[in-house]
Nucleic acid binder design. Structure first.
Lengths: 249, 249
DNA sequence: CCCGAATACTGATCTATATCAACTACACCT
DNA sequence: AGGTGTAGTTGATATAGATCAGTATTCGGG
């Protein structure tokens, strides 16, 4: 059992100052999480099933492979990675999750989580009980649509990374995608911190860590980016974008 | 506009013999398509929104990239491939679709189909208008669950093929997966026809066509399979299964 | 502030698979 | 039937990126 997703106790949820912070309408994520296009009344019904968790330390897991599927999680702050263990016992990174993104939707058809999900930073999540959510979705068309939309988006994302791309294209695409996701969240799209290690990036992009180092160094030489440890600055977004598209020979 | 998914005309749907064939309860697919766990009354409501198309010739498209998203399709008979065109103008195969499988769910979040879908064989589909389906899903919990389950399954499938596998593993996995899907449909899991070309297989698995030829030849030499043109017979399912798992060194 | 352990970078090889180049065998048309 | 085009196979070579090896940097803990 994982205690991270444990509901706030009744006691907690009655403490009004605390409760207020939980309200989706007050949430700093705005419309990034699910409650898109909902009326105030609908939002309030939605809030009643959402549970905000205590802070999560870097390295702490919120799902483990094999866990019974009960809830999905929405990232409030911080960063998570999800990964599976292959037959060789090697970790395989499946995705990174920023604030506003929903984690755990791939667990539905098995009824169990197949991936492990771990915090890379001090983080916070909201726990969304899936049964309650689908019940609610029945009377709230926009919520149902939003759930379908989020899943469909993940399918598209995976279709991209499954494509046959060169190392340069993969890494450029990764940086461009991160940049866009940060922008959407109100952070700088030109300068950001890579919460994940080179090893994690490599695993996610199906490359060797050495290749990640080399390509980042090469991009820096070519003046596309400036990298210092985990700090990345994008100097030439257009050329980076271009590098993410297949080189026409 | 694509005319394949055009609704049966009212005239057609009133012709009882024809109409009877459309009924999901009579469909040879049984529970492979969506109507799982539905009551007879629910099935009948579902049937009212489903439209069976006329036969589709090999090479005929049922969706084109950019088409407005209105319906998903369920394969009745035959085989389809979906593909995208990359920046180089190269076709990139995204998946193959057998009877009972649902096509087009990745179009939801964009509101447009991003993939092209073409018949590889003489085929038939049912067209499922998505709006009507989600409306229906609201009063039919099992239908809603089924939609989520199908999307979740596609996410898992993509997570697999996105993994970093060797050519041998990819091809073994491809054969094992096909075998399982045929079995589920009541066909032989030991002997089947590859409706798709070597080129399509290669594109789907992100390999060169030459590599596909060579690996199939090697599998035959090792006594795992017998290949003759498009006909495949699986001689040693256990060893093939084993070959699909990463070699432990 | 120092030390050991991660983590990251760089250079030297190796290798799986792509690419290039013939060649073969059907499949389809007239 | 014969001819032509497409799909598949097989061999030779090239190469992107993995692996191996060594060094540098950062970080956490006493």
């Amino acid at each position: 059992m994982n205690n991270v997703l444990r509901m706030n106790t009744l006691r907690d949820s009655r403490r009004e100052p605390n409760r207020a912070q939980v309200a989706c309408s007050q949430c700093s994520l705005g419309e990034l999480c699910l409650p898109k296009d909902l009326t105030d009344e609908e939002k309030s019904r939605f809030e009643q099933i959402v549970h905000r968790s205590r802070p999560i330390q870097a390295g702490e897991h919120i799902f483990r492979s094999g866990d019974e599927f009960k809830s999905v999680a929405s990232v409030r702050t911080g960063c998570f990675k999800s990964y599976a263990i292959d037959h060789e016992g090697q970790e395989q990174v499946l995705g990174f999750h920023l604030p506003g993104e929903i984690i755990g939707l791939d667990a539905i058809h098995q009824g169990r989580h197949m991936a492990n999900v771990v915090a890379l930073d001090t983080s916070a999540i909201c726990s969304l009980p899936f049964n309650a959510m689908t019940n609610l979705a029945r009377s709230m068309p926009d919520l149902q649509n939003e759930l379908f939309r989020v899943m469909s988006q993940r399918i598209s994302e995976l279709e991209t990374i499954a494509g046959d791309l060169s190392a340069d294209e993969r890494i450029a695409l990764f940086l461009v995608s991160l940049s866009g996701r940060f922008a959407k969240r109100g952070y700088s799209d030109k300068e950001f911190i890579l919460a994940m290690s080179r090893r994690d990036i490599a695993s996610y992009l199906r490359l060797a860590t050495e290749t990640v180092s080399r390509v980042l160094a090469r991009f820096q030489q070519r003046g596309l980016i400036k990298v210092d440890r985990k700090q990345v600055r994008i100097l030439d977004p257009d050329k980076l974008e271009e590098a993410s598209r297949k080189t026409v020979q």
